[in-house]
Design a protein around this nucleic acid. Structure first.
Length: 260
DNA sequence: ATGGTGGATGCTCCA
């Protein structure tokens, strides 16, 4: 089973790319973030035409929005609201015996100080809340949490560790929060399981570069973590970098794992 | 130190 996560930055603008992605890689499950559409306007038929007939969606107008679309039945669909906000960032569903968590962590604004920046405070509180909640789940259960975590934890997850230390997404305080979240249930980073942590690896490149590939100032913000019980069944992990050039591009690229 | 782009919306916010 191939499970793919992608921050699409508007699903309605990315339908042709999802078609192309499906033709090339045949994912069985799509976990999408930043769909940016209210549920009644979600393109259900377009995804169903690609074979993703089972859909769980939680969207809102203009901002955020998560969706799980699958070629296999989804059960036990639930949404989770964190920090007292119904802001469409966490959607869960059971598929093929695996519980999937599609997650969109707040970006956190520009100033990496919770006292000066309410968005950064929200991001830290969000990571604290989900870590506490996941710590209460059964770690023996086959689960995956995947999505745009908006944190690049490793020095090799950013183009310049030194220059990024004071930039939101790579500050030590965020990385510590993400590490605590990962420790909450002993999550295994399925992508770094295959691609060594010594290797530079990105899943996002800013729109604000004349040539994203030439400057290559990327960050690895999108992640797939699995519980230890799934580790023996992991077959491969891929970051579909080329899609960053597909027109019109999202600023994120899809990340995919295969589970036997 | 600065501004650079893109998406949805509607005279601005968010990434």
């Amino acid at each position: 089973m191939r499970i793919l996560t992608w921050n699409v930055n508007s699903i309605r603008l990315r339908l042709e790319q999802l078609r192309r992605l499906n033709a090339l890689w045949s994912p069985d499950v799509l976990c999408l973030q930043e769909t940016k559409v209210d549920d009644p306007l979600f393109p259900k038929e377009a995804l169903a035409a690609l074979g993703f007939t089972h859909q769980a969606i939680w969207g809102m107008k203009s901002y955020n929005g998560v969706a799980i679309a699958a070629k296999l039945p989804l059960t036990d669909v639930q949404t989770k609201a964190w920090c007292g906000r119904q802001d469409c960032r966490h959607l869960m569903a059971q598929i093929n015996g695996i519980q999937l968590h599609c997650l969109y962590v707040p970006a956190g604004g520009d100033i990496p100080d919770p006292a000066l920046n309410e968005k950064f405070a929200h991001k830290l509180a969000f990571l604290d809340e989900i870590a506490l909640w996941f710590a209460g789940l059964d770690a023996a259960r086959p689960m995956a949490v995947l999505g745009d975590f908006n944190v690049a934890p490793l020095p090799t997850d950013v183009w310049s560790h030194k220059q990024m230390l004071k930039v939101v997404s790579h500050t030590p305080v965020e990385v510590a929060r993400l590490d605590a979240f990962q420790a909450s249930l002993g999550w295994v980073d399925a992508v770094r399981h295959f691609i060594p942590p010594e290797e530079q690896l990105y899943s996002w490149w800013s729109y604000r570069a004349a040539d994203w590939a030439a400057s290559n100032r990327g960050r690895r913000l999108d992640h797939i973590w699995v519980t230890k019980s799934l580790l023996p069944r992991l077959r491969q992990a891929l970051v579909l970098r080329d899609t960053r050039s597909w027109q019109p591009p999202s600023d994120h690229v899809p990340v995919m794992v295969e589970i036997a």
